[in-house]
């Protein structure tokens, strides 16, 4: 059993009200409940108010070529994740 990896899930997120769910990527989880938790941690860094769908990748029927992933912007809740948080001394280029 340990050789068998947990199933792949495709993750869709509605970042804000008024937007539709968008595919953001995929992850592995043994079941839907964990997939949802992992999706929240990985793809939204638990930003509040977002809606997440997880779909077993095996349940998706695709025409060719498909779009299997995309990546969206990091959450806003941890300010130090954003580069502008750091004080860069005047005159430093390329940082």
């Amino acid at each position: 059993m340990s050789k068998e990896q947990s199933p792949l899930w495709e993750v869709f997120v509605r970042a804000r009200r008024g937007l539709s769910h968008t595919h953001v990527g995929s992850l592995h989880a043994p079941d839907a409940e964990l997939a949802l938790r992992n999706a929240r941690d990985l793809y939204t860094r638990r930003q509040e108010g977002v809606s997440i769908w997880v779909v077993p990748a095996s349940a998706i029927t695709a025409s060719s070529p498909d779009e299997k992933d995309a990546f969206f912007d990091p959450a806003a809740d941890k300010v130090y994740r954003h580069p502008t948080f750091y004080q860069v001394p005047d005159g430093v280029a390329h940082l």
Binding site: F85, Y86, V88, V92
Partner: peptide, 26 residues
């Protein structure tokens, strides 16, 4: 495509990493 998109996301976050390192050294 998938690699390019992953790298765009990774690079945005890496930029914060480089700055935090620079700030520590400074």
């Amino acid at each position: 495509g998938p690699y390019a998109r992953a790298m765009i996301r990774v690079c945005k976050e890496e930029s914060f990493h480089q700055r935090q390192g620079y700030e520590i050294l400074h």
